[in-house]
């Protein structure tokens, strides 16, 4: 970024400074993903800054979800999937054979498109992660973790009187916030969100977006979304994926007002034919 007094940058000074100051949390270099014969991701190189929201946009099948699932090695569960290239988190290669993908997923949490609480009580939903990872030393500690997580997911006030009710009995938006609470209960560094609002109404969506705004001060958030407006609202950085390539990565204000690549512009203005 040059230092000319560009009014556009003036407008977003704070964000720009934050991004400049933050070191990249995730560094991806020449990532290629194959599903059997299909070449799903081609030479993707992206830096994702710490403690900010980075959104991936792009048409369906462009590889944005695939790349998201590379970051916590969720693609390992697909037998035909092959990943090449390097992805570093804090400078450590996550595809290092010595690294256990299950432990990685405890550090890189994930929230899915459809709210998918376990068909258990609200409490057990949140407590599950800390339990299996041994994050609490006592019942009281676990209670504290559950409450803190629900509070961080701004769900505590709504569910504190019915923690033993089934998580599936909540509304869609509440379920999604429960899923977020469940994810932050294990205190990950990175939270991946795969279209977290696509099944929600606008009010529930707004709550999740507000939540992301709060969470980004403590977590590095990567979100895949089909809603350009949502990407524009919640993220500081935006990457546009197209046909397995990363076409453009940049500050969100710049991407949405003055994208440099014509494909980005065509996509965000609705000109793809």
């Amino acid at each position: 970024m040059d230092m000319r007094p560009d009014p556009l940058i003036m407008m977003t000074t704070q964000t720009a400074q934050a991004t400049v100051a933050a070191k990249p949390k995730i560094v991806a270099r020449n990532v290629n993903v194959f599903y059997g014969e299909k070449h799903a991701l081609k030479d993707v190189s992206v830096d994702i800054p710490e403690r900010s929201v980075t959104s991936f946009i792009g048409p369906s099948g462009c590889g944005k979800s695939t790349f998201l699932r590379c970051i916590n090695r969720m693609n390992d569960t697909v037998p035909s999937c092959r990943v090449e290239g390097t992805i570093l988190i804090d400078g450590k290669d996550i595809y290092d054979p010595a690294l256990d993908p299950v432990q990685l997923r405890a550090r890189v949490g994930m929230v899915f498109q459809k709210p998918n609480p376990f068909p258990k009580s609200i409490y057990d939903n949140v407590a599950y992660g800390p339990r299996i990872h041994g994050l609490s030393r006592s019942k009281g500690e676990l209670d504290q973790i559950v409450e803190a997580s629900l509070r961080k997911a701004s769900l505590w006030e709504e569910v504190k009187d019915r923690l033993t009710d089934s998580g599936t009995g909540l509304s869609g938006g509440q379920q999604q916030r429960l899923c977020i609470a469940r994810t932050i209960a294990i205190n990950p560094e990175i939270i991946l969100m795969d279209e977290p609002c696509s099944a929600l109404d606008p009010i529930a969506t707004a709550r999740i977006e507000e939540l992301m705004e709060e969470l980004r001060h403590n977590f590095t958030i990567v979100i895949v979304t089909h809603s350009m407006q949502q990407a524009a609202r919640v993220s500081q950085q935006t990457a546009f994926f197209h046909l397995g390539h990363v076409v453009e990565v940049g500050e969100t204000p710049q991407i949405f007002t003055n994208p440099t690549d014509k494909r980005t512009q065509d996509y965000i203005t609705g000109r793809f034919g």
Partner: peptide
């Protein structure tokens, strides 16, 4: 909700 060049 125009974006990019449309917004401009």
């Amino acid at each position: 909700q125009p974006l990019a060049n449309d917004l401009r």
